[in-house]
Simulated assay, not measured.
Amino acid sequence: MAGTATRVARAGLLKASVPWLALQPTAKFSTLRDMTTTRKAVLGVMGVLGGGAAGMVYALNESVKASELELHCTTFPWPHNGYFSSFDHASIRRGYEVYKNVCAACHSLKYVAFRNLIGVSHTEAEAKEEAESVQITDGPNEEGHMFQRPGKLSDYFPNPYPNDEAARAANNGALPPDFSYITAARHGGENYIFSLLTGYCDPPAGVQLREGLYYNPYFPGGAIAMAQALYNEVMEYSDGTPATASQMAKDVSTFLRWASEPEHDQRKKMALKALMIFPLLIAISYYIKRHKWIVIKSRKFAFKPSSK
């Protein structure tokens, strides 16, 4: 009690005798507090205005887009889409014929070799004949010159143009993409390719296309530099299948899917083998585990009292 009274008295004495020790807010501190409050208010207003302006710009930008004119491709029931389904190899062969007779004039397939056709769509003799039907630039020879020779199984499909500049010059400035991984590089895969090849139509009212462009609602933007290439009976299949536009689009889409994923069938075959052997391996593992650990788990320790 005495100590408490002493501390209270000292505090009152100091407060009475030394007024400047009292912690009272000064004008300077009040000014700083007002400035901080004002700054927060200004920043808040600027944030609200900036967010509103950004939202308005985004809304205006979306309102002028003709997104309703772009169609999303349909998912078609491809026979190779099943968990353990393989490619239709007859369709791959027909798709190769479509690529060779229609697409190869503009689009390269530089990551696929003629030997890759063996056992998939052609026999070794047929693949060799296909390779020898093209001329491959090779060299230099002993005189230092490049020369042309018939293709071999180890050769890759030749590029229709010597370089990208020549390709652009022949296609009004547009560069035809390589088809090696086209289905893996496009959203929708073979569904997109099929929809694109069969989706050419007249532009809707209000859409103006410059010269050299064609309208396809499945192509981003709608304006595509590639003209419609597939028409009914534009070629003949070697197996006698009617060469309708949709049939050719389906076959070349299957061929391009195979070109993008040539290990497709082997991967699914390996997965099927793994699933078939896993139950046996699990049973053997369980038996070994029980055989090895049953003695340890059933072991009992007994301590005998000392004889002393």
Rank of each mutant, 00 (worst) to 15 (best):
A2Y: 03
T6S: 12
R7G: 02
R7T: 07
R10Y: 03
G12L: 08
G12N: 05
L14K: 10
A16R: 07
S17P: 00
S17L: 04
V18L: 08
Q24N: 11
K28R: 13
R39M: 07
K40W: 02
K40E: 07
V45I: 08
L49Y: 05
G55R: 14
E62L: 02
E62R: 06
E68K: 14
H80C: 12
S85V: 00
S85I: 00
S85M: 01
F87H: 04
H89F: 10
R93F: 01
R94G: 09
E97V: 00
V102Q: 08
C103G: 11
C103K: 01
C103D: 04
A105F: 00
S108Q: 11
R115F: 04
N116L: 03
V120P: 02
H122C: 07
A127L: 01
A127Q: 06
K128R: 07
K128S: 13
A131T: 00
V134H: 03
T137G: 00
G151F: 02
G151W: 00
S154V: 03
P160E: 00
N163L: 03
A166M: 01
A167K: 02
G173A: 12
F179G: 02
S180Q: 04
Y181P: 03
H187A: 15
G189W: 02
N191W: 03
Y192Q: 15
P203Y: 08
E211W: 02
Y215A: 14
I224C: 02
A227W: 01
Q228A: 10
L230F: 08
V234S: 15
V234T: 09
A243C: 04
D251T: 11
S253C: 09
F255S: 14
F255A: 13
W258N: 14
W258E: 13
E261M: 05
P262Y: 07
E263G: 10
K268T: 10
L275M: 12
L281Q: 05
Y287R: 14
I288A: 12
R290Q: 14
F303P: 08
S306Q: 11
S306C: 11
S306M: 09
